[in-house]
């Protein structure tokens, strides 16, 4: 399996650990990731909140680059995945928009590549391939898998998992030995896009998610989105200040947890770079 790898802006900065863990775990699972050379930003929420054309053209430039590589795209970041997959659908189906976009980006792209989230790529790996590499099963860990919005919605764009009760991440982490929890906030929005501009709104949403996870008995959260991760992890102290709570819930990327189960060093997985202290969880894994 070989994919055109689209890290996106966050994975080159605040989510470096997602990038690192994605690469090292993929390698172990026999998934080859070749970074799209000279990729540009997908435009994220700001583009589609501002201009439809912009929200298609920015991702389309990257899709056209991937098409030149002759590979399907794998994107770890849920937001990038959503934008790339959404734009891909338009490029495939909307003739008029396709013509306009191709004109500007100087390409002949027709939506021929398939865009997958890295979670979806991992889900297609045979169970045996993962389980055979688990050397430190996550037996003592109760994980609340948090999918957020952009991985599963809108279903017309995403579609690889259920928009209300997704299971992909749960299944993979179960193979790694973890107990994953049934909880009601798997796909509730964390409000990351309002984090900077309307922090109180984001804090309320983060608080509710943490509350539900803790009540369900979670030792930590697993996620697949750098915006969710930084919102849930970095703003946890702000939440505690605003709500008088004492949350200390580590928020991992699912790739980091798989990596830990595979015995990959915590340094390679960059598990110490989070805001909330992760050492307790690491001790539990042993």
């Amino acid at each position: 399996m070989k994919y055109a790898y689209y890290p996106g802006c966050s994975l080159h900065a605040t989510a470096k650990e997602f990038d690192a863990s994605s690469r090292v775990v993929s390698r172990s699972l026999g998934i080859e990731l070749e970074e799209i050379e000279d990729w540009s930003c997908c435009g994220a929420t700001s583009a589609h909140a501002t201009n439809h054309f912009l929200s298609i053209a920015l991702p389309a430039r990257n899709l056209a680059l991937a098409a030149r590589m002759g590979l399907d795209v794998a994107a770890p970041c849920a937001a990038c995945y959503n934008r790339l997959a959404g734009a891909n659908k338009v490029m495939r189906n909307d003739k008029e928009m396709r013509r306009k976009v191709n004109d500007v980006i100087g390409a002949e792209y027709h939506g021929e590549v398939t865009v997958k989230s890295l979670l979806e790529v991992f889900a297609s790996v045979e169970r045996e391939r993962i389980s055979s590499q688990v050397v430190k099963p996550l037996n003592n860990l109760k994980i609340a898998c948090y999918y957020g919005c952009l991985l599963v919605r809108p279903p017309a764009v995403t579609g690889f998992d259920d928009p209300e009760q997704p299971v992909t991440m749960d299944r993979i982490l179960q193979i790694c030995g973890a107990e994953t929890l049934e909880w009601g906030y798997k796909t509730e929005c964390c409000g990351a896009s309002l984090g900077l501009s309307r922090e109180p709104v984001a804090l309320r949403l983060v608080h509710d998610i943490l509350r539900m996870a803790v009540d369900a008995g979670a030792d930590c959260l697993a996620c697949a989105c750098p915006l969710c991760q930084s919102n849930l992890d970095a703003r946890q102290e702000h939440v505690n200040r605003a709500f008088g709570t004492k949350f200390k819930v580590p928020v991992f990327y699912f790739t980091q947890l798989i990596g830990l189960a595979m015995g990959i060093s915590s340094r390679d997985l960059k598990v110490h770079s989070h805001f909330v202290d992760t050492s307790k969880v690491l001790q539990a894994i042993g």
């Binding site: 589609h48 919005c149 952009l150 919605r153 809108p154 209300e164 796909t187």
Partner: peptide, 11 residues
């Protein structure tokens, strides 16, 4: 503007 683009409504 407050709409967080989470698409829960759409789904």
């Amino acid at each position: 503007w407050l709409c967080a683009s989470c698409a829960t409504c759409t789904a």
